[in-house]
Each structure stands twice: as C-alpha cells, then as structure tokens.
Design a binder for these strands. Sequence first.
RNA 1: UGGGCUUUCGCCAAAUGGUAAGGCACUGGAUUCUGAUUCCAGCAUUCUGGGGGUUCGAGUCCCUCAAGCCCAGCCA
Length: 554
Amino acid sequence: MENEVVSRNFIEQIIDNDIEDGHCKKVITRFPPEPNGYLHIGHAKSILLNYGLSQKYHGQFNLRFDDTNPTKEKEEFVESIKSDVEWLGAKWHGDVLFASSYFTQMYEAAVKLIKKGKAYVCDLTPEQIREYRGTLTQPGKESPYRNRSVEENLELFENMKNGVYEDGAKVLRAKIDMASPNINMRDPIIYRVAHITHHRTGDTWCIYPMYDFAHPIEDAIEGVSHSICTLEFEDHRPLYDWVVKELEYENPPKQIEFAKLYLNNVVTGKRYIKKLVEDGIVDGWDDPRLVSIAALRRRGFTPESIKMFVDLVGVTKSQGAVEYPMLEYCIREDLKQKASRMMAVLDPVKLIIDNYPEGQVEYMEVPNNQENPELGTRKVPFTKELYIEREDFMEEPPKKYFRLFPGNEVRLMNAYFVTCVDYKKDANGNITEIHCTYDPQTKGGNFAGRKVKGTIHWVSVSEGVNVEARLYENIVDEEKGVYDEETGEINLNPNSLKVVKNCYVEPALAKANAQDKFQFVRNGYFCADVKDSIEGKPVFNRIVSLKSSFKLPV
RNA sequence: UGGGCUUUCGCCAAAUGGUAAGGCACUGGAUUCUGAUUCCAGCAUUCUGGGGGUUCGAGUCCCUCAAGCCCAGCCA
C-alpha cells in the first residue's frame, strides 16, 4: 500500500479551495487553440494539464477553437489540431466547440455593455488609437468619441454589424480607464470591422470580437470553471474579470496562468520553423527533428511518453526551460517494456566464420524482450557470413575494450561464441572482412564452460534485409547556441540528419508497419517512418539512442 | 524611468513559520547474453538571488536591493 503524499500543484490547490468554499461545483476546463498553425510540445502541456484536471476532479474537458480572427485561421488547422489532441489521449466532452458559434451572443453582450454605458464606438484611426493609448510610462488620453450617447452608440454599432463601414473605420471599445497603469485597461477595443469570409460563419459577420472580450464570454457560456492559460495573459486578467463582471454572469470563470513549457536548445517559433520548411532543411512541419506534435509522433514518441514528460516537468508560474534528455528519458522508459529488441547493423563490416558450414541456415529462437516475456519469441537466421558493427572490431584495442580483436573471443548475441583469427584490409587500411572460428558447444549463447566479456549483435548477410535508417541530432548547433547573435538566424547543426543507406536488419524487421517501434539492440529505439516506408521496405527513424557509459580512451 | 509576474542543486521541482523531498543529468560500484536495463552509493554538510528585520524558530512573514520574463496589434 503506497501512502506517498503527492503534493498538488498550485492550480490544483486553487481548485481545491474553490470546491471547498463552494465557488465551484463542477470543474470544467478547456483547451482553446486558435486554428492558425500546428501544435507543438508546449501545447501538449496545456492539453494534458487541462484534460488531466478534468479527470482528476471528475469534471469536463472542452476542445474549443478560438476562431475570432478569420484573417489567420484555416479549416486545415482545426483538423490537424483535433487529431493531435486525440492522439495525446485527451478526450473532449461532446462535440468540438467553436468561439464562432457564439458570435450572436457576443454581439448581444456588446449591446448590453453599450446600454450600460460601458462601451462606445470610436472613430479614431489605428494610428490615433495607438497615440491616445499612451505609453508604458505615460497615461493615455480619452478618445473624443468616448462620451457618445447610448442611443448613438447603439446605432453606430448596428451599422458596424450591417456593413456600413470600411475595415478599420470604426471600432467598439470598452469604457474603462485611459489612465490605468495596465495598458490593457485603457479602453480596449472589443470589436473590429473586417469584411472577411470566416471559415465557418462565412459572410454572416463583418465585425469580429477581440480575444479579450470573446474569451471570457466563451468560457462563461460553456460554464468553464477554471480558464487556464499561459503567463503572458496575466496582465489581461483584470480585463477578463471586468468583462465577466459587467456581463453579470452567474458563475464567473476564473483565469489562472501557468508557465509555458520550453525546451533548452529547441526551436518552436513559427517563423523559424516556417523558414526551415521553406529552405528545405526539414521535410515539413512533421520532420522528426522538430517538436511539433506531428513531428514527435512521426519520430516515434508515444502519447504515454509525452504525458510522463509533462507530469515530470510540473506546473508552476516560474518560467524555465527543461533539458531535452528529460524527454529522452521518458521515451526510453516507456518503450523499455513495450518494444521488441531486434538486431540491426547500422555500419556493417563482414564477419566470416571459417569453420561454419557453407550454405547452412540455423534459426535461433530468441525472446523479443528479455524483460517482458509477454512479447514472445522469434527466429533469427544465422549463417556463415554475417554483418557486425564496424566499431565492434579493432585491430589494436585499447585497454578495457572487450569487443572483437585478434585472438579475442566474444559472444554473438543469441548465437555462438566466436574467436577472431584473422582480418583483411583494403589499400586504404579499411577493414574489409573479419575471420573467426566458432565453438559449436556454445550454441544459443549460454555456455557455462567459459565466460566472455563482450556480446555483440549481428545480421546474416544472405538472410538479412537492407533498409534505410535515419539518425538524428539536434537541428540546432548546441555549442553555438540556438540563435546567431548577429543575424538572429538559427545556428544549424550540419549533422542533424544522417541517412544510413546500407543498414542491415534481421528479416522480421522487413515486415514492420509504419509507426511500429523497436529497440535495435545497442543502437537505440527506432520507429518505422510513416511517410517513406513502403510495404516490405520500411525506413527507420531513430527515436533516441540508448544510454552508454562506453567511451574509447583518447 | 509605469504595471504585472518570477527567482530553492547543472535542469525541472517539493516544502503552506518547525529545522532543505523527489526526478532528470552527472559520478562511483555490483549484477548482466545489449558497455542497455536493474541495483546500491554519492550529488544544495547551516544552504533557498543579495542585504536587513520580526520570531524561541524563516525558503516560507515584513522592508529593501538585484536579476530575468511579459505588456504600448483593429493578433491570440
């Protein structure tokens, strides 16, 4: 019985209090993306946080598209966002919701404010509005249109709705305080004119609500109890509360801000990614080197590993950046038991067993995962000629090198003990073949007679299959830092993608389907690529290498 | 030089005035048919950005200084 006390994060503490004092009867959270781009790992934190809270408190989680600005939004993105949220395992309540479904209610809410004398139509130009707003250190000044009568405002606002005015000619503003030290409270614009076709409402509207006005209304309509967003909205909370109060909602939602998830040495900025795509440096928004949800999925990360990661990172208000190895830890941890452990040689050199019968194929029965018997066993063909890793042989080994070298005996994993008797080199001094003898009584690799320090993996030359594998490094040059100080551009790592064409894998791997994940013994975890794998000819992306404490002395 | 927020080990993060959890990373060592995994040990010995104060007692309260992040879109 585990009696461990798990401390609650600050949001849970707020919710606990709200429940305790009766302010909150049902916890309703939401993930409110604008459909204007692809989701990345940072959004995963928000999704999982909001969904997790709804689960923990037996409440409800909504997926709502915040589509109040048709100039930036596309249907394409609502589809990709939906599939990303789904993939992460966050099940939203009922139908997908859209802010645009509430346009009528928002319009009515605006009318209500006008009637209360809390909003007015302003004719100032964008330049003038900026000027009147003041600066960070100086208060703003009031618009000359600020004291129009309720009747006039009502008429003007209706005209705005009816398309009487050009884009930018007039806006509706909340009447708050032009001298507020918080710039968001200096009579913020709550409605603008925009003659644009909306991806869902078409041409029904030519005025659209601004975020600060729309968002609290959306939350209130849906009965959201806790509206969780990121730190940059802290300054907006007084306005959020103002809207909710003036509109007199019964159970006003509460906005809570938390710190975004940043990864060290990782690029998430839209414009940078866009440039990488345009420059052909990556093959799309789902290039496995990126950290969009789609990219992580393609790379081979599992939803479980992402969940583990955000849980490990925690929820606070202090902004920081997590190190990438934490994410790597999570996927290794998740795949450790789940993935079959197969043999694949990434940098092959031929090993010939001189005393093994020519043409013979022996099938070795091997467990798919030593730590998880449920994964069963498979048969791996063994022959006279094999491929082994080039780095598993050295002519002149340093101390404590216990792989293959002249005169040394090692275990071929799951097969036999072999002893190196000879090797051949080409004119350039590269090893071309290694000759060994094997000991038949060591079959299967279990032999009580002798101990052997090294175990290496192998693939049969005649039975193995040639595939392509891709090895990744950070797309950013970590030595130089993410951004070039002068140009502001990304410092690219020229070695971020290594394509290995002559990778040899055991036959079972040829049958891998897209997204299947394996451990390639001693080489890391790999995932069959969704885009480039074809039937019988998978392409493997390395998700993450295995940890290694082995280093050659220098 | 206005306002808001943040500051606990290299990174993330607990501690809710009672004497600095945990994870990642790292370092040793044991086990091992993956130099993986697993295991065991070490990793802020008066220390919580600095300096004051209150208190029997402060990372937690007060004052003050400093540093970092965010805000002047008819973006979200």
